[in-house]
């Protein structure tokens, strides 16, 4: 199955900039469908970025994060060719994981 996670991690020497785009409905549980029925909450709760076995960024999300969420951050201590591991878990217990090479 194709991954739900798309990541671009680019190193500019000292810092590595990371951009991640994830496919997820991020239903807040407050929106009604066309029949007027509430769409139950379904959103990513935690998104974790690991480099070299160390947590470099953790996102705790609620239903207020936009559909197909996007996040950007930067960290120090990595170099080109290193691997970045990304994983998420949603409120229904579904998960996905991927690794990206830092460019």
């Amino acid at each position: 199955m194709a991954s739900t996670i798309r990541v671009r991690a680019t190193s500019s020497g000292e810092t590595t900039e990371v951009q991640a785009l994830i496919q997820h409905p991020m239903d807040s549980g407050f929106v009604k469908d066309s029949k007027g029925e509430i769409i139950p909450p379904h959103f990513i709760q935690q998104l974790i970025f690991e480099h070299d076995g160390k947590n470099v960024f953790t996102a705790d999300w609620g239903g207020g994060v936009s559909k197909d969420p996007y996040v950007k951050f930067a960290f120090k201590g990595a170099k080109k060719g290193d691997e970045l591991k990304i994983s998420w878990i949603d409120n229904k217990g579904a998960t996905d994981t991927t690794t990206a090479k830092i460019q």
């Binding site: 810092t15 470099v56 960024f57 996102a59 994060v65 969420p69 996007y70 996040v71 950007k72 951050f73 930067a74 960290f75 120090k76 201590g77």
Partner: peptide, 8 residues
């Protein structure tokens, strides 16, 4: 080690 800059 992580910079205090976030976009979402």
């Amino acid at each position: 080690g992580t910079l205090p800059n976030v976009a979402n």
